[in-house]
Design a protein around this nucleic acid. Structure first.
Lengths: 262, 262
DNA sequence: AAGTGGTCTAGACCACCCT
DNA sequence: GGGTGGTCTAGACCACTTT
């Protein structure tokens, strides 16, 4: 039950992970409280018989999770957890479709070419009045409608889309034949809304029922927009758990756009 | 404008970060497409004049972000981005309260001792019928009510709470004098709901308006529950952007509970 | 057998903080 | 000046995949 505070060299678990677990348990058990300084790297090297790089790797896992915070010249300290904020994973719906026991499917409600102006045109960076593909779909699980998906897709006349592909669900497969449209980056925005009458009827819900709205903006290489639209997730069927126990991940992981020279 | 594909040794930006940016830009610009293999580590060592550990550090940043995926014996490959799923940060409201230009405040509506049974008792792991602190608060920004907070707090008779502390907003400060209650870990669950009449009136909204509901479960050392309750965020005032561009972070960072021996 | 990524070592130099 | 974390090197051995 009690984790022995030493490295098991015969274990298949690498030393840096063992050490990370040991230190994390110090925090979870209260032997180290928020604000406390953990032993210095050289001290950990001595105590556990590890090289400095291995010790640093263990520590960097915990600073990455936000549990520890290192300060040059001073030491490494236990962070305060956030009590409200946190990190959430919204899983990709099409991964859920592939789940073994549940049967997911995609129902294609509408596909058409539309002249686009206003917001959708701006998002796709196409000229106002030119055409784009518009589609509406419902994603079902065990023949229960869960998500309503509505989006505009940039139309590339050199690679016409087949209706069969659209119904197949996985939007990614749709693009994989076309390197110009292969998704490279996605921007998402999550909000809470109430369903309108038409949306509700498609989801077998009532007008005004709560839902998650996920605005979806997909880009191909060189920040070329490919798709813009949104998905409505029935509020009574989805909720999301935080990961990492309220700790704030370190900035390094969250940095965005792949930086330039400077 | 064009990132030179070489390491600037005079730069203040460390070599591993420069290399990570270079490789990430290969992906963003489409020189490397999803599924492609990137050059092997030894090849990158040669091409950029770096040691293997430095090259690996650059790669591990991108695998951590989910942009690359390494496979032992085969190579390192560019991942497919998720088109729907993503990672979201819900910021800690009390951090926003500290924002320089906006003025945040906390209004304490109710504090009382309550006999607890049912769900709240289970969550706090106290005996049914025993007492806990119950409180309701409204968090305001620029005198506009944005969040309604309602929670049960385990009562520790050896450290009675002062009403002044509760109104002060930062729940963490509430516990910092009491090592037994110092938060070590938080579980959060996000859902979408419609406001009830009483909740709406406190938030100056209408009954049925959409809101985020954040169930909050805070634990001290040894997984002792300290607080359970939920916060309602006005749907018309909050939305959250995904980070990391639709890429799935690697599992290593997300592992939960600090694992044991095995 | 050759090539790949995964782990680990034992050093080195540096910038920074504290006393 | 002594201790701290931040970066980097040049090796080593291993497990795995492919040819």
């Amino acid at each position: 039950m009690v984790t022995r505070d030493s490295i098991d060299e015969r274990s298949f678990v690498p030393a840096y992970l063992q050490l990370a677990h040991i230190i994390q348990n110090w925090v979870l058990k209260g032997s180290l409280m928020p604000g406390d300084r953990i032993p210095s790297e050289s001290e950990l090297c001595d105590r556990f018989g590890l090289s400095r790089m291995t010790v640093r790797r263990a520590i960097s896992i915990l600073t990455g999770k936000g549990i520890l915070k290192s300060e040059r010249g001073r030491g490494t300290f236990v962070s305060n957890p956030n009590t409200e904020g946190g990190l959430f994973v919204i899983p990709d719906f099409h991964e859920m479709l592939r789940s073994p026991e549940d049967k997911g499917s995609v129902k294609l409600l509408r596909v058409e070419m539309r002249r686009v102006r206003g917001i959708p045109g701006k998002r796709l960076k196409i000229e106002s009045g030119s055409k784009a593909l518009y589609m509406e779909r419902v994603l079902e699980m065990n023949s229960e409608p869960l998500v309503f998906d509505r989006k505009y897709v940039k139309y590339d006349r050199s690679h016409p889309l087949l209706e069969a592909e659209l119904g197949h669900g996985d939007l990614y497969g749709l693009f994989k034949n076309n390197p110009l449209l292969a998704p490279v980056r996605t921007e998402l925005r999550l909000s809470a809304t109430a369903l309108k009458r038409e949306e509700a009827s498609l989801l077998l819900a009532k007008k005004g029922d709560p839902a998650f709205c996920l605005e979806q903006h997909i880009f191909a290489a060189n920040d070329t927009p490919v798709t813009w639209g949104w998905l409505l997730y029935r509020g009574d069927r989805f909720s999301f758990e935080s990961i990492s126990g309220g700790y704030r991940q370190s900035e390094a992981l969250l940095s965005g756009s792949g930086g330039n020279d400077r």
